[in-house]
Design a protein around this nucleic acid. Structure first.
Lengths: 166, 166
DNA sequence: CACATTTTGTTCCAAATGGAACTAATTGTC
DNA sequence: GACAATTAGTTCCATTTGGAACAAAATGTG
């Protein structure tokens, strides 16, 4: 008969044993992936908020616009999987700060064309390095073969996920 | 001389072109990873909230306790990278619902030993399948070789990230 | 062309969030 | 053993968040 009150008897795990979850979970690939992604980006976002006053959503808007010449708010919502009202707020905030520009679409009165300003681009230049550094720091543990394999796999997964969400 | 107002002239991207970010970003590995993780789990969390009334933090607490016999709130905070007060709230909520159990640690009056109840385990059984399904759905696009490689790489990365965060 | 439907973006508001200050307990230091 | 320093957990509170309802514009349908 199993112990009815394991709580009282079982030893608490050491801090180093907490990673056991990586191997025990039924959905361990998904869990690992999610854990890694979080652990990778959260500290960077914390730094961005502290040093530049940008929330995660605001930075993502800047990031999207720094790689695509013109986007609508809807595009950004789709790319970042965030609700539209959050994007709307971020857009207004970034407009006020002069990081982005907005022009009503002459062909569709509902939507507006968003683009990054020189000031916004300058800010993005200052920030992106942090992500690259973090990326190098973590992915540096992989050898060339692993990195090549991972690159191909992530590319495949990303396209598959993007396609299956649409 | 480049166009001073690309916003006015440039064509808006088709929806299918929004994935161009995957290839353009300086930090594209990190970006892809983060995108995939988000796209994988967000719909599942939405469903859990809708159908079971659990927030992401509450579910993560249940998840952690369903794989580790006893944990402290601090352990859960470390495993999930969430602030301690959020964990504290989740603990009280889940206690009220009878999903988890809490016993003061006899050896350290500051901390409490958390464990899952039978009711909590039953709930977790109902939920975990959704993650497994989602995992199969997305990772199913990979062939055996790729899946094996990804598994090894994620394992390596997860341990490295966990170690470098401590 | 009238009118229902869809789509973009905004506003409203209740709920979630997380930083900071706090209490209680433990550990370290002299 | 006194007292500073640390740690686990909670509470407070201002800010953030996101679902739902909404207005305005566009599209579809008869």
């Amino acid at each position: 008969m199993p112990d009815e009150r394991p709580n009282a008897a079982t030893r608490l795990p050491e801090s180093s044993e907490l990673t056991a979850l990586f191997d025990r979970a039924e959905n361990r690939h998904l869990y690992r992936l999610s854990y890694i992604a979080n652990a990778l980006v959260l500290p960077v976002y914390d730094g961005i908020k502290r040093d530049f006053g940008l929330s995660r959503g605001e930075y993502l808007l800047l990031f999207c616009l720094s790689h695509m010449p013109v986007l609508t708010a809807r595009d950004v919502a789709e790319m970042t999987k965030r609700p539209r009202n959050s994007i709307s707020r971020a857009v207004h905030r970034m407009l006020d700060e002069g990081y982005i520009d907005r022009v009503p679409d002459p062909e569709d009165g509902r939507q507006a064309r968003l683009s990054i300003t020189a000031k916004g681009r300058a800010l993005h230049e200052r920030i992106i390095g942090r992500f690259v550094d973090r990326e190098d720091e973590i992915f540096g543990v992989l050898d060339d073969t692993e990195m090549t394999a991972l690159d191909a796999i992530l590319q495949k997964l990303a396209r598959h996920v993007a396609a299956s969400a649409a």
